[in-house]
């Protein structure tokens, strides 16, 4: 059995570490819509990758980095209209993906597999990317912890202290898009948003310090993901929906706790 699910358990742990860090930042920065936009928009990179026949992780990484930069410009310079513009990017990315799939001859079952992902089918290449992104996230959060926390609380104050808050926010979106790409094959575009935000939403209620929130989110997502892997393996179900249902159940349970 370990032969069959070993890789997915490793992937689950690596994704959980990333969710603990980036998911917590997404939640406290109210960047849920932006993350949804990056995740769904990443479909454009998948379509382009399939059309050109190049490495899909590579094409998706480049494409989502462009989206992240566009979204950074939107949130920094067009704040008053950012909610609508974020929706535009969301739809634009998906449309690009669909057009390129239309242009690709033959039937592309592969493309659909990215919509819901399958952590049971994860490959070594994905694991390598996850290790790389996790390392980058860990190094970044260790060095930038105080800055990220200050940014999340009051980004204008960074400016008072002579620190470039816009640049920091852009970096945060770049990290988010890398995390999205590394999770696309395992989790799938459609459910990434739920999985990135539910564990931090639960953790937020039980913690007083931000680093505690990150650690608890990681542990919770590891529980949901590994639980989901086992259930879907034994009952032959699609793993991502099982993981999301477990996480949502956890969220509703946690809501019983009053503030």
């Amino acid at each position: 059995m370990w032969d069959l699910i070993g890789n997915s358990v490793y992937a689950g742990i690596l994704i959980s570490i990333a969710i603990g860090i980036i998911g917590s930042l997404i939640v406290i920065n109210k960047a849920t819509a932006i993350t949804g936009s990056i995740a769904h928009g990443s479909f454009g990179g998948i379509g382009i990758g399939i059309f050109l026949g190049v490495n899909i992780l590579l094409s998706t990484t480049l494409f989502t980095l462009v989206l992240a930069l566009l979204l950074a410009v939107i949130t920094i310079y067009y704040k008053h209209r950012s909610d609508s513009l974020i929706g535009v990017i969301w739809a634009l990315g998906m449309s690009v993906g669909i057009i390129f799939l239309n242009l690709t001859p033959g039937y592309n079952a592969d493309a659909l597999s990215y919509l819901f992902g399958n952590i049971l089918l994860i490959e070594n290449g994905d694991i390598f990317m996850m290790v790389g992104v996790d390392l980058l996230l860990l190094i970044s959060i260790i060095i930038l912890y105080n800055r990220f926390l200050a940014m999340s609380y009051d980004i204008d104050f960074l400016k008072v202290r002579g620190i470039n808050g816009s640049l920091l926010y852009t970096y945060f979106l770049i990290l988010t898009s890398l995390t999205v790409v590394m999770s696309v094959r395992a989790i799938g575009i459609i459910l990434i948003l739920a999985l990135f935000t539910i564990p931090p939403l639960i953790a937020e209620k039980f913690t007083r310090k931000f680093y505690q929130m990150m650690i608890l989110s990681s542990v919770l997502s590891a529980v949901f993901i590994i639980g989901g892997i086992l259930i879907s393996y034994f009952y032959d179900l699609a793993p991502t929906p099982v993981i999301v249902i477990l996480a949502a159940a956890g969220l509703f349970l946690s809501m019983l706790k009053k503030d």
């Binding site: 406290i28 105080n146 926390l149 999340s152 009051d154 202290r161 937020e204 007083r208 310090k209 931000f210």
Partner: peptide
Amino acid sequence: DIPITVFDIVLQG
């Protein structure tokens, strides 16, 4: 809603 304490905020200065 951010898990941040008074001391954390003051330190940001």
